[in-house]
Amino acid sequence: MEIFGTWLAAFFTLGIISFLYRDNAWYKLCESIFVGISAGYWFVTLFWDNIHGLFWERITERHDYWLLIGASLGLMMLLRLIPPIGWISRWPLSFVVGATAGLYIINYFASNVMVQVENTLMPLFSAKFGDPLFSASPYSIVGNIVVAAGTFTGLVYFFFSKEHKGAFGGMAKIGIWTIMITFGASFGYTVMSRMSLLIGRMDFIFGDWLGLIR
């Protein structure tokens, strides 16, 4: 049984990779199976976790009847199937959008604006003898200046109400260069980890399946 499973997994692995050559029937088969199996998988998981675990058990065992509001919103969603009253299905949607907007405002404001601005408020250097920052290397002082100036000019780049011209345009340019360095750094950092994913699959093909490497 175990061997059958390994062969099946190898069949699907090679089928997906065959897409790199061109679209073909093997890939289409893998794709169709993947779509069907995974859609079913998620429905089953949502059913047992959310409807059975989160809703039914909490209502019957802990008497959390307020969850019925969630279920009513869910039922309203299905009213879309009855055209004359289909417009009611917008209510749960408005609920979701309103709640998302409310939650995101505070979360992003606290974690992205407040925390990031606070972290940027650092001394660039120190002229006081004996201060650890006094003996910092020129590289780290330049680094501190780059962090402050880069954040500032990066924000200039995102400014919408002023044309990127003259000195302001120059700052915006430095801003986008800083952002591009960030993207490059992130890109370079990810390349290696993506390669290891492939090594993992090759390990399965040549090790677990073909037994050529141990």
Partner: peptide, 29 residues
């Protein structure tokens, strides 16, 4: 690069995103 320009770019992007989210959410609300 990781600790200086990369950090600066990350911060500018994150602050920008947050302000975008605030403005978008307010438009919705």
């Amino acid at each position: 690069i990781m600790t200086a320009p990369n950090l600066a770019g990350q911060r500018a992007i994150m602050i920008g995103i947050a302000l975008g989210v605030i403005s978008m959410s307010l438009r919705l609300i």
